[in-house]
Design a binder for these strands. Structure first.
Length: 818
RNA sequence: GCCCGGGUGGCGGAAUUGGUAGACGCACGGGACUCAAAAUCCCGCGUUGGCGACAACGUGCCGGUUCGAUUCCGGCCCCGGGCACCA
């Protein structure tokens, strides 16, 4: 055994050993319980970043721990390979997105292997390969036939100079990132998936996900946003002949405030706004102004509130008053009816708007005697005619009934969730498998003609998608009538690929179906690990796809991920480490200087996995120091000759204590890995154990046996986190055996028996001392003992008496005096 | 703007169900070893007062509940994530 810790050699050796012996290849034929551990697959951006190291180490620790616990583990890996950055890189480097992507994959795969992940590389997938996307094209056609995919117009960011559609990320302060032109909103036809048809199930099934963080479930519930409210129709005064329908419809969750409505507001895109602008140039200009800027909701919602009267009026459905119709930029076209009834007295935004434009404010709800407007709480109605005195529930019922009676409204349940637009006007994505035929319309490409292959050898000129300009791609024959036709040239949102990859790993090589029977063995994923930034979109789409695949008969489970661990972000200088922000730290340097084990140990030690981790270079040194000390401890021990782990015999107090600590640590670490996912405290407790062991001197046989027992177990406990060094140490401690065959250690109950306890003594809740007592001591005896302590007596002054004594079993005694 | 998190020493963090605040590590200071340096080992390390025993204060801010609050409740401040075309 070398005296110095030779991390390069042992890491290379261990990785070769795992590959040669296919140590992590997963099989469906096992009598052990299955454990499918999945980490969110990486986008092949070029090089591994710290977020990857964190994510994949967490997944690997859980995989290896479960393997040791006797599970049949599958941990796969692949590439989320389509996406915008490849197009940008291709333009910049004058290469093709495909070539750039494949070379990144190659490099990053080498890096991932250097990290020492227990991954089954046989199952590797890349979403940009035709054998992968063929099946999502097939699913697309099936869903299209079922009516779950449909076409409608929707709004995109339009760069009028480059003549291209921009992603939200490409709009900076309302301007295109390349051209600098003011961005406009433009409506174009796109394909949509009917996720709203699954809104109720997606909402209800959150209750089944006991293994998900509450935080994520709450975010998804709010995103789906089921609300109970009321449709209200406002007849348009004068009813312009060409306007259909003749009523302005709004949706409100506060029908109780209807009698306080003083105006109505519509989005700039609303039909009524368009109509009013026909003979009103000022209004037309205002609407055009509203249509400038990005479509991102955060931009719309933070914009200064602006509005303009249309000159049109509607009639209040219950009190008959005439209310002005305004166009307002704070009304979202995509939510509800694209129009709202405004109740300034009881809504923050309406209040602000009404004050700005001197619109009337009419309070109708009372909560306390001195309400301050806007008063947005529920309360009791006043100045509301026959509804006076009713509370929220009563008035909601009464007002919706009154509206129903007039045929001007009714109760309605609504979701905030919108259908998912999946069309992208970009090149580097999965081609949408639709053919447009003049006589047959939109024709889904039949399975026999799939995949619709994306040409990879293209030149990116920075303006538009190459396949939109390539007749050899878009000119085709209609699958139905055989006549001349054109292919759809839009591609799919890349969330499409990442919504079903978890199932494909289980059927990675199937060329006859999207997924086969093996999926029903592995699914659902037992543990999913990934960044908190995916809490809503990716995780909601994946849940949706799981249900779609279930409903076309491919899989049986209702939900894809039983347990979810959302890892916090790796931050640098207070914000997310990302390529676009240019604040990345390259983990490769860490691996080259200290080895993968140090990188893994430091990542797991620096913060609990769910918290964000502020990167600091110092501290890595400490992780490495610990591994060197561990190596030296084993070296010093092994150097004195072979011995066997302690099993029985008389022990000194010191050796009993170290065995007690060892077996408590075994239990704690198992709990920290398995239940708490608290890797940092697991490492701490092993460090404490090693610190205690370092103080144990002596080289007699019994001491050496106990030391052997501790070191063997430490190697096992740490092996999920630092697998290379532990495998090497194990080979020294137990020649001719392999750590991967050893299994998770069982704690020795006999070593954990303690007959005394320490009680903390408090006076009025303040720590004053402690006592060590027999475990069997009665509550009365403890109380008496506590009061007698000098540290308690000195706080009991002449005039005071002991009022109460609180004994918390096994913990503390609090003497309350006064 | 809306939804979800977070805030504890010089720093990362610990305190698992309301019960010892600061485990473990980093940085720093002192010492040992060394011709010297590095490495390693030992000691110290929240703030204030005190030679000391010890005492008071202390978990973003203000208030509350409790024998006891980092933990629960109410109100604020700051930071991070998401907001449907970054992935």
């Amino acid at each position: 055994m070398q005296q110095q810790y030779p991390f390069k050699d042992i890491e290379q050796q261990a990785q070769n050993d795992w590959e040669t012996n296919q140590a992590f290849s997963a099989s469906e034929t096992s009598d052990k319980p299955k454990y499918y551990c999945l980490s969110m697959f990486p986008y092949p951006s070029g090089r591994l970043h710290m977020g990857h190291v964190r994510n994949y180490t967490i997944g690997d620790v859980l995989s290896r721990f479960h393997k040791m616990k006797g599970f049949n583990v599958m941990q796969p890996m692949g590439w989320d390979a389509f996406g915008l950055p490849a197009e940008n890189a291709a333009i910049k480097n004058e290469t093709a997105p495909a070539a750039w992507t494949y070379s990144n994959i190659e490099h990053m795969k080498t890096q991932l292997k250097q990290l020492g992940l227990g991954v089954d590389w046989n199952r590797e997938i890349a979403t940009c390969k035709p054998e992968y996307y063929k099946w999502e094209q097939w699913l697309f056609t099936e869903l299209f036939k079922k009516g779950l995919i449909y076409k409608k117009t929707s709004t995109v960011n339009w760069d009028p100079v480059d003549g291209t559609v921009l992603a939200n990320e490409q709009v900076i302060d309302g301007r295109g990132w390349r051209s600098g032109a003011l961005v406009e909103k433009r409506d174009i036809p796109q394909y949509f998936m009917k996720i709203t048809a699954y809104a109720e199930e997606l909402l209800n099934d959150l209750d089944k996900l006991d293994g998900w963080p509450e935080q994520v479930k709450t975010m998804q519930r709010n995103w789906i946003g089921k609300s109970y409210g009321c449709e209200v129709e406002f007849p348009i005064v004068g009813r312009p002949d060409n306007l259909k329908p003749g009523n302005l419809k709004v949706y409100t969750t506060r029908p109780d405030t209807l009698m306080g409505a003083t105006y109505v507001a519509v989005a700039a895109e609303h039909a009524l706004a368009t109509l009013a602008a026909q003979n009103n140039p000022a209004l037309a200009e205002f609407i055009a102004e509203c249509k400038r800027g990005s479509v991102a909701e955060a931009d719309v919602a933070t914009a200064e509130k602006k509005g303009m009267a249309t000159g049109l009026f509607v009639t209040h459905p219950l009190n008959g008053e005439q209310l002005p119709v305004w166009v307002a930029n704070y009304v979202l076209a995509s939510y509800g009816e694209g129009a709202v009834m405004a109740v300034p007295a009881h809504d923050e935004r309406d209040f602000e708007f009404a004050k700005e434009y001197s619109l009337p404010i009419k309070a109708v709800i009372k909560n306390t005697d001195n309400d301050v407007l806007p008063m947005t709480e529920h309360g009791v109605l006043f100045d509301s005619a026959e509804f006076d005195g009713l509370d929220f529930e009563q008035s909601s019922d009464a007002i919706s009934s009154a509206l129903s009676a007039k045929n001007l409204g009714k109760k309605r349940t609504q979701y905030r969730l919108r259908d998912w637009g999946v069309s992208r006007q970009r090149y580097w994505g999965c081609p949408i498998p639709i053919v447009h035929c003049a006589s047959c319309g939109e024709v889904p490409v039949p399975l026999a003609q799939l995949p619709v292959v994306l040409p990879e050898d293209v030149k990116m000129d920075g303006v538009g998608s190459p396949i939109k300009k390539d007749p050899s791609f878009y000119e085709t024959i209609c699958p139905t009538c055989g006549g001349k036709a054109t292919r759809e040239t839009d591609t799919l949102d890349t969330f499409f690929e990442s919504s079903w990859y978890f199932a494909r790993y289980a059927s990675f090589d199937s060329n006859t179906a999207m997924v086969d029977e093996r999926a029903n063995y592995w699914l659902p994923v037992d543990q999913y690990v990934g960044g908190i930034e995916h809490a809503i979109l990716h995780l909601l789409y994946a849940r949706f796809f799981n249900k779609l695949m279930r409903d076309v008969g491919l899989i049986k489970n209702d939900e894809p991920f039983t347990n979810l661990l959302t890892q916090g972000m790796v931050l640098k200088d207070g914000s997310k480490m990302s390529k676009s922000k240019g604040n990345t730290v390259d983990p490769q340097e860490l691996i080259d200087t200290y080895g993968a084990d140090t990188a893994r140990l430091f990542m797991m030690f620096a913060a609990p996995p769910e918290q964000s981790l502020e990167w600091a270079d110092s501290g890595v040194e400490g992780a490495n120091r610990f591994l060197r000390r561990l190596w030296k401890a084993v070296y010093d021990h092994v150097n004195l000759g072979e011995t066997t782990a302690y099993t029985a015999g008389e022990l000194s107090t010191e050796l009993k204590a170290i065995r007690l600590q060892l077996h408590l640590t075994i239990e704690k670490v198992a709990d920290d890995y398995g239940r708490r996912h608290s890797f940092n405290t697991a490492i701490s407790s092993v460090m404490e154990l090693m610190n205690a062991l370092a103080k144990v001197e002596g080289t007699d046989e019994v001491t050496r046996q106990v030391r052997q027992e501790v070191l063997q177990n430490v190697a096992l406990l740490l092996s999920p986190i630092v697998p290379h060094i532990c495998q090497a140490l194990w080979a020294e401690l137990k020649p001719n055996s392999h750590i991967l065959d050893a299994g998770w250690p069982a704690a020795d109950k006999a070593a954990m028996v303690q007959d005394t306890l320490e009680y903390v003594i408090q006076v009025n809740g303040k720590l004053r001392g402690s006592i060590t007592v027999a475990k069997t001591e009665s509550k009365e005896a403890l109380e008496k003992l506590a009061v007698e302590q000098p540290c308690v007596q000195k706080f009991i002054e002449e005039s005071m008496t002991v009022r109460k004594i609180i004994v918390v079993p096994n913990k503390l005694i609090n003497v309350v005096v006064g």
